[in-house]
Nucleic acid binder design. Sequence first.
DNA 1: GTGTTTCTAGTACGAGCGTACCAGAAGATG
DNA 2: CATCTTCTGGTACGCTCGTACTAGAAACAC
Lengths: 175, 175
Amino acid sequence: MTDGRRARGEQRRADLVAAAAALVLEAGPAGVSHRAVAARAGASLSATTYYFADLDELLAAAGADLAAAWAAHARATVESADAPPAELLVRAVLPAGDAQHVRGHYAHLVGAGAVPALARAYAAGRADLDAVVAGLGLAWPPEVLVALVDGAAVAALSEGRPVAEHVRAVVSRAL
Amino acid sequence: MTDGRRARGEQRRADLVAAAAALVLEAGPAGVSHRAVAARAGASLSATTYYFADLDELLAAAGADLAAAWAAHARATVESADAPPAELLVRAVLPAGDAQHVRGHYAHLVGAGAVPALARAYAAGRADLDAVVAGLGLAWPPEVLVALVDGAAVAALSEGRPVAEHVRAVVSRAL
DNA sequence: GTGTTTCTAGTACGAGCGTACCAGAAGATG
DNA sequence: CATCTTCTGGTACGCTCGTACTAGAAACAC
């Protein structure tokens, strides 16, 4: 291996980004601090400031990661094709995980547009998502279908109701 | 007036709640601190702890205020009936104000379900909203229509695009 | 080996936070 | 008048935060 330092450093950096992304899903963007990320990644506090100029940069990297993972999850779900289209739609748009993860996902989503780098990442992810959803063969344009799922999810989150269940009910009422 | 102290105290308390609600819309729930609320309401720091046992209680009061205001705004918009139904739908569901207000509204919405008192307030507000939207005479159930607007708004927020514009586009594509 | 770059660990500073406490002003009651 | 309750203002404690700084370990080049 030439230059093991570089490789080690990139691994460390990736660990920090992954830890930050996990924290976003678990505790929302506000739960991401230098110290929390370091502890989660098993690194020292200084590592976070060595690899990222400030917290915004770390959050942006984590957000780009989350946006990419979200689009990849959607693609894998739709391509598995192991359920009716409406069910695939719901599973593709909603992130996997418990209620806290879903809440973290949407909290991050709502705040993402205020950070240009994240806005771009999510625009790209959403374009990917729309393309995938269009392949489901449902009657509406993909933006409409995705909005339906997102909107139903927000409603469920605001009332503290089970998200997937409520989303399925709204989708079935619409199709 | 009998007992001017009591009346003065209730006014003070209402001022604090209003200040907290304004801060939620301007800076999101994370922007609400005892000190920020006190400064905004023109009160001293101690007033916030005198009227509210802790920050959660203050946030809950502000949230209940926001939920009620949101439902009232929707009702007034629909009852004005001074635009086509689709446009009334968009105006009723989206909060008035600039992009920051809309972002604050949805950030608060997503987090509300985690606090039982807020979940109840928003459930009541949403029931009100659904009833009002049902009166628009559009082809879909109100939950579906509201979800469409909320989902489109979240998409726009995540990409940093103008919200109302994007929501109108999605709604017109769906109807 | 020496020297250089990359990375880690530890510590420190100043700021803002939630919250608690207390002295006193303001108004009501007798 | 005096007394009691309600409310206000000011201050303080302990904590976490972002960020900066420095010393040294680790991996490479020569």
